[in-house]
């Protein structure tokens, strides 16, 4: 559901059938990983990559994203990008 009021677009990560439970930890990790993979193949400006970026930003705690970005910079991120 997207709602636009006074120039502010209210849009958030949709319900994902892969993660139907209360625990959404994997939704966060998976969308972050998808964004990194997408970025690697298509580049940051690609539209579909922006979707994953938005979802991971909505679902992941900012502290986790910062931590993972540092790990990627220092080449010690455990995920398979």
């Amino acid at each position: 559901m997207v709602l636009e009021v006074d120039g502010v677009k209210l849009e958030t990560a949709p319900w994902d059938p892969r993660f139907p439970n209360t625990n959404q930890t994997k939704y966060c990790y998976q969308s972050f990983l998808d964004y990194q993979r997408c970025k690697k193949i298509r580049g940051e400006e690609f539209d579909a990559c922006q979707y994953y970026k938005r979802v991971s930003k909505s679902i992941c705690p900012n502290a986790w994203i910062d931590k993972w970005n540092t790990q990627i910079e220092e080449n010690r991120f455990p995920g398979n990008i």
Binding site: M1, L3, L10, T12, A13, W15, T22, S58, I59
Partner: peptide, 14 residues
């Protein structure tokens, strides 16, 4: 209570 219905906003609480 477990159901989530097309949210317009996500708020993270720590």
């Amino acid at each position: 209570m477990d159901e989530i219905k097309c949210p317009i906003l996500t708020i993270k609480i720590f």
